[in-house]
Nucleic acid binder design. Structure first.
Lengths: 239, 239
DNA sequence: GAATTCAACCTTGTATACAAGTTAGTAAGC
DNA sequence: GCTTACTAACTTGTATACAAGGTTGAATTC
């Protein structure tokens, strides 16, 4: 299959939409739903819905109950903490390898353009910075020349996305994020291996430490908040 | 779904059989096939075949060509080397953690029963030792208390299985395997962290170094060899 | 009122039919 | 002989129907 064909087919559309629904808390951890319900909502038959759901199942986002519907993976503290540990391990290895790579400055050029810019060039939109933040971490792995490690890391980080999106204090950390990222990049370029590994670990452990603070209330607040954000993105009605 | 229900359904049967076909080289890297062909071969409709194939696709074993059939993932040296590096990273981390775990002897008790037995209790069946060898490595991760790391490691090792099964020199290494594994376990119990990490890396790199030696001829030899093994496993006909 | 039973409804698991795109073979033209 | 165009066959992508098991609500019994 050419990637163009898959990106336009119904199953792929449903897959992406369901994932987005999970990330935007329109489907909450533990929610139950049926294939038919999704099919009605997505204006399709059950067949591509099932394809999308098998993929989401394999990715760790949903579970099927035999002849009884599907369920978003219930919230599990240990699971997310385990994922954070994997993420830390992979990113630490990536920066170790980058510190020893003669071509590291070339590899990191794209990231440095974004994160080592002058203050007046920085984005002030917290959604955009959140996106760039995530891309920063993907970028460290992608510069590291092990595509499988990068793919596993991406899968881990996507599964952790709901944790990041539940942490509303991130909005106030734009400047700190730019500062930390540019310092990490600087340390890599200067080959300060142990320093940058420790720095990165501390940077990620800030997020990891928020896992245990998550409450049901915060998850329900997030549902409202992201639903409102969605409405605000809608184009004005033309009457 | 209860795991009992899934283990008896048609899609699961087909998934496992196709995986086995890949591991036994009955489906070679690069082979093309269609859903209908598999459906005929497995005496089922296309529907559960599709489910099985989506899962195998997601696991990295096959690829779909838009309206043109499916293909076993072609052989790719870099891919397997990347996987080996991920595997080494994960196992090294697991033994580091075990060396610092006060309960490590209890956790490793099962592995020690198998690998630190007296020479007359050892298995001489190379297939069984290959299986136990793989389980040894899974066991290191499963003793490590990070279930996601163990799951990722298992997925990586399964994808590497065909490399291990192409290495026919493994058959002559039964004694060395028992010795190396018991030494690794001993080093862990004594908390010799750096020694065991280096030992484990060397142990795995022996396999990694066989990737670049793989030839098409060897793959085709493997097809014959594993097909013969299959025939020898068949029960005698009752006439 | 609580517990049990049963049937209807709902769901997934599977089979089958139809739609849409690709590929290979054949015929025609140069 | 080579190239191009066309068509039939094949394939996946999707829709729909049927089968098999689970759940829920109502009726009955204690």
């Amino acid at each position: 299959m050419t990637s163009a064909a898959r990106t336009t087919n119904i199953a792929e559309r449903i897959y992406q939409q369901l994932k987005l629904d999970i990330f935007d808390f329109q489907l909450l951890p533990g929610d139950r739903f049926s294939e038919s319900e999704i099919a009605r909502r997505m204006s399709a038959s059950r067949t591509p819905v099932r394809e999308a759901l098998y993929r989401l199942e394999r990715d760790g986002y949903v579970q099927v109950h035999f002849r009884s519907g599907w369920q978003v993976r219930p919230f599990d503290f240990q699971y997310f903490e385990d994922l954070y540990d994997v993420r830390i391990l992979l990113e630490a290895e990536a920066v170790r390898r980058l510190c020893e790579d003669k071509d590291r400055e070339g590899r990191l050029a794209g990231l440095m353009t974004i994160w080592c810019c002058r203050p007046e060039q920085r984005s002030h939109d917290s959604s955009e910075v959140a996106f760039l933040d995530e891309e920063f971490h993907f970028g460290l792995l992608e510069c590291g020349q092990n595509q499988e490690m990068a793919a596993i890391h991406r899968s881990v980080c996507e599964r952790l996305r709901i944790i990041r999106r539940l942490d509303f204090t991130q909005k106030g950390r734009i400047e700190a994020t730019y500062k930390e990222h540019s310092e990490i990049l600087d340390d890599i370029c200067h080959g300060r291996r142990d320093k940058v590994v420790n720095h990165l670990k501390k940077h990620i452990e800030i997020s990891k430490n928020t896992v245990r603070e998550i409450t049901l209330h915060r998850i329900q607040e997030a549902r409202k908040r992201y639903a409102e954000d969605k409405n605000m993105d809608m184009p004005p009605k033309v009457t």
